[in-house]
Nucleic acid binder design. Structure first.
Lengths: 268, 268
DNA sequence: ACAAAAGTGTTATCCTTACACCCATGT
DNA sequence: ACATGGGTGTAAGGATAACACTTTTGT
């Protein structure tokens, strides 16, 4: 899952950082950043994609800046692509974080110093005030190819219930994103992006339970979901397990897209 | 309702524009703006507060910029205060507009030119790319004191179903705001901010009908709302009309605030 | 045969909807 | 008295929640 790159910032080929320091940030809108809460789901629950700045012993959300002539949504799509390889996913802006003190630089700089002079322009860029727009992405972990950016050395999934200490206000950003999911799950058929193409009703139920953080009744869940009609029932799974084989389902994209637009009201 | 100010930008006392041009915009974050969709409700339905740049024959949403050391939310509160006099209201960020081409400057500049040289720095400030965060405010029109800013000459309520042509993407911003209200009304007890302290059940029903753009059943609405329990019934109104006097109600702030946080699920 | 988990059914309760009915009031 | 609109009631239908029953399958 995790790609280990060069172990130390100062031993690492510096061309990318150098070029960012030299002129990269003249290509970006100043003071405006994007943070992506990329959420994946596996048998242990929900996970968030995080980046590790090992030099500073810090984990951070994947983020980036907006090119001068780039739509903000486009920038988010680009960042998602760069970190995961995915071009298609549920991706949605959810909140913009604009508090003056949202980035606590004391701790950050403590770990950065003493450093080479050449980093000064980069530090200055980083030290400016940023207003950051949060994007929520729901992805299929199995289709992801987590890739660190030029500042970080690893890119890893972290279980949402056991997150490491995060940079700045990133913990808060994740909480706000989860809040959004829990609201949206009540009127949008979230799920297609987080599950593989074929899945069982139990898979979907576990996903909903992960999101809502509570247990749901098996029989009632099945009836409720099927009545909404955005699932197509497929052949039975050859389960090879000591019980009745469950049906497989897939999303009926026509109906699913329709409900994505129209919204639904369900799941108490 | 409308305050007529000086009729022409060029005859108007220039000190405020001059000082903005001179150094005002060094106090603000570049490229970041706020647009407020301020919504009021009266017997004719929902209204939006708009500003008129008469020189350009354009209407615009109240907006502004963010001071260098000011929280974004604080800036929105300040703008709301400046345009309406209100300090307390339902005020909530709802979306950030970041498309590269969201502001069509051709039309804007066409109307601005030919102009005096002194405006050039201001035009340059305005011509930069802005990413704008939209805030939704729900207010009691009767408590508002609409006041134009230093660039505009009047500040007026416009009925939401009959808006004039608006600047840039402001029409789109309003539509997005309305979409938000219609979603939020399903899980938040919206209403306190839009109505006077005391009101009848019919007033509240008409408000919901304005927002949802459909008629609701009188009896069922009453039962549903009362069961939620955020209203206190007061004495009967001396109606002086040819029918039974209706009760007056007011919001029970304790219960209302609780439901604002917790959310509700209702109104189909 | 049995355990385990899937699929489906049953029931009591609650909520929603669409009305109907009665009440208070000014003309 | 009657038209108007307020307050409340009712009955049918639908949704929900809790749980039970049956089916399939590997051990």
């Amino acid at each position: 899952m995790c790609k280990q790159h060069n172990k130390n910032l100062y031993l690492r080929p510096m061309n990318k950082i150098d070029s960012f320091v030299a002129d990269g940030f003249t290509q970006y809108l100043p003071g405006q950043s994007i943070d992506c809460v990329i959420i994946g789901y596996n048998e242990h629950g929900l996970n968030v994609l995080t980046l590790n700045w090992k030099e500073f012993d810090m984990w951070a959300l994947p983020g980036g800046f907006i090119h001068n002539k780039e739509d903000m949504d486009q920038a988010a799509i680009r960042i998602l692509k760069e970190r995961t390889g995915l071009e298609l996913a549920f991706l949605k802006q959810f909140y913009t974080f604009g508090n003056y003190n949202r980035r606590d630089f004391e701790e950050f700089l403590k770990q950065f110093e003493p450093k080479e002079l050449k980093f000064q322009p980069f530090i200055n860029w980083m030290k400016q005030r940023f207003i950051s727009t949060g994007y929520l992405a729901l992805v299929d972990m199995k289709k992801c190819n987590p890739t660190p950016d030029f500042l970080t050395e690893s890119c890893d999934w972290k279980p949402i219930n056991n997150l490491p200490k995060l940079l700045f206000d990133h913990q808060h950003i994740i909480e706000k994103a989860l809040e959004q999911i829990r609201i949206q799950i009540n009127y949008l058929p979230i799920g297609l992006s987080l599950l593989p193409e074929k899945f069982t009703m139990k898979d979907l139920q576990k996903l909903y339970e992960s999101i809502l953080q509570k247990e749901l009744d098996r029989g009632n869940f099945q009836k409720k979901i099927l009545k909404l009609g955005f699932l197509d029932r497929l052949e039975k799974q050859l389960s090879g397990r000591a019980h009745k084989a469950p049906y497989l389902y897939k999303f009926n994209e026509t109906k699913y897209d329709y409900l994505l637009k129209k919204g639904i009201g369900f799941i108490s």
